[in-house]
Amino acid sequence: MAGKNPLSGDRPKPSPRRGVTASVWRQVCALTLAAAGWKLEGDWPDAPKAVLVAAPHTSNWDGLWMLAAAGFYRAKLRWMGKQSLVDNPLGWLVRWLGCVPVDRKAATDMVEQMAEAFAQSDRLILAVAPEGTRAATDSWKSGFYRIAMGAEVPLLITILDYGTRTIRVGGLFQPTGDYERDLPLIKAYYVGAKGRHASQFSVSENP
């Protein structure tokens, strides 16, 4: 999707987050992205809840750039982490940084736990890497899709393209429940995009 770079002065559609803190953080994120040579394309949609499809994901740096992009759009980005990350004296800080804990010992699985987290939140944008790993893989995991279906929320398509140094907000995608039909439509947004380690990202059909 072509468009002006919001970092160059064009104002994107902001999320409802307001106030001095949000404005200062937005400027910090803008400076961080600009200093690293990143451009932004697209408006952040007016959706209080969504599963953000975070791809390509081939490096630990990807999370930093996505957090900065979300901060620029005044959006709070959340991510899944092990329960042990919050079961300690600094757990409050980890939660504040965006962690939504997953208890792998619980009777309910990840999808059910995330659906419950969405149900208990007024606003929740949960970032999930569909590849499920930073290593090279020819297939995408279905977890991101199943979470969206279980929580009855849309997918928010974002493309972290190192080839053009552009983070694109592709908009919302409403899953139909037919994963085999929807997956090629979702992957089409990522054709031509390159990860930081280009050989480790693929949008080929799942085997």
Rank of each mutant, 00 (worst) to 15 (best):
G37H: 05
W25N: 10
L124Q: 14
T158C: 00
A22R: 13
S23T: 15
N88D: 06
L183M: 12
K194D: 00
T164E: 08
L183Y: 13
N60W: 15
D87L: 04
L183H: 10
L183V: 14
V102D: 08
D10K: 15
A75N: 15
W38K: 00
R146T: 11
K13T: 12
A188F: 13
T164F: 06
L155C: 06
A188K: 14
W38G: 04
W65K: 01
T21D: 08
T158E: 01
I186K: 07
A117F: 13
Q200S: 08
R95V: 01
E131D: 07
A136T: 12
Y190E: 02
L93P: 14
E205L: 01
V111K: 04
V53D: 10
T137H: 05
G192F: 04
A115M: 05
K82Q: 04
L90N: 15
D178H: 15
N60P: 12
D138L: 14
W61D: 02
R196D: 09
D46I: 10
G143A: 00
S84W: 07
F144C: 02
G37F: 03
D46V: 13
A47C: 14
P12F: 08
L160C: 09
W140I: 05
L93W: 11
P130F: 04
I159Q: 08
R95A: 02
G19K: 03
A117P: 11
G192W: 03
L33C: 03
V28S: 12
K82C: 02
K187T: 03
A119W: 06
A119N: 06
N5C: 06
D10R: 15
I159Y: 09
K4R: 09
E112T: 00
E112N: 04
L126G: 09
P45F: 08
R11F: 10
D43T: 03
V102H: 05
P89N: 05
S202T: 00
G81F: 03
P130Y: 08
R95D: 01
V51P: 08
G42E: 03
S139I: 15
Q83V: 02
S59Q: 14
R17L: 15
D109Y: 11
R146A: 11
Q27N: 15
R134I: 02
G3W: 09
G143Y: 05
A115V: 04
L172K: 03
A129P: 13
T158I: 02
S139C: 13
A34Q: 10
P184I: 05
D122I: 13
N88Y: 10
G195V: 00
A106E: 05
G91C: 03
A68T: 01
A69S: 00
I159P: 09
D46K: 15
L64K: 13
I125F: 02
D109H: 12
P207Q: 14
A106S: 07
L31Q: 03
G3E: 07
P12N: 07
A35P: 07
G42F: 06
I147E: 09
A54W: 04
I159N: 09
Q27K: 15
H197L: 12
F201T: 00
W25K: 10
M66T: 10
V203S: 04
W96T: 13
A70Y: 01
